[in-house]
């Protein structure tokens, strides 16, 4: 093993969850240990059917991700905004977005509400037809991204949900 290879190995281990590595070759032995234990725990969201939206025009709300004891180590994942496990509900059609079934009724959902697949989160109206839009994910609404009675286009982010 040359110096460059050892450097690369150290970088690799630093980024991983591995606590210690030992390598033994003819006339050569190498042990690499992480500085502190246990390694930082990152809770990753289970893969949901909804693709994670990286681009929301509204600022991304920080999801309360449980961070273990502060270590000088860099986080083991590639750099992403802290709330990247949030899932976005996007508009499947073009029309006008309404938060409630009618002006005098309360909103379908508000920030903090729990949703699950099949729960109606809003109405999108097009050409006099009212379409109830259902959530495809299970979780909690953390942000409403569109104002009531405003036009929305295909794939436009509507709600941010922290998956359960």
């Amino acid at each position: 093993m040359d110096f460059k290879q050892i450097q690369e190995l150290i970088k690799m281990i630093n980024k991983s969850n591995i606590g210690e590595v030992s390598i033994e070759e003819k006339g050569f032995k190498l042990t690499i240990k992480q500085k502190e234990e246990p390694v930082q725990q990152i809770i990753t969201a289970p893969m949901s059917a909804q693709p994670v939206a990286a681009l929301a025009p509204a600022p991304v709300a920080a999801a309360p991700a449980p961070v273990a004891a502060a270590t000088p180590e860099k986080p083991a994942r590639p750099a992403e905004p802290a709330a990247s496990n949030a899932v976005t509900i996007k508009s499947p059609m073009i029309g006008t977005f309404y938060r409630s079934p009618s002006p005098d009724k309360p909103s379908f959902v508000n920030v903090g509400d729990e949703v699950e697949p099949g729960k109606v989160v809003c109405i999108i109206e097009a050409m006099k037809l009212f379409n109830e839009i259902e959530s495809e994910v299970k979780g909690r609404i953390i942000k409403v991204l569109v104002e009531d009675a405003s036009p929305v286009e295909y794939d436009q982010p509507l709600f941010q949900v922290e998956p359960a």
């Binding site: 059609m93 073009i94 029309g95 286009e153 295909y154």
Partner: peptide, 22 residues
């Protein structure tokens, strides 16, 4: 500009309801 659907023409540029909604 209004996004009207997925890449396939059938889902976008040939999609009459989406175009009318836009």
């Amino acid at each position: 500009a209004v996004c009207i659907g997925k890449p396939a023409s059938f889902d976008s540029y040939l999609n009459i309801p989406h175009i009318m909604a836009a």
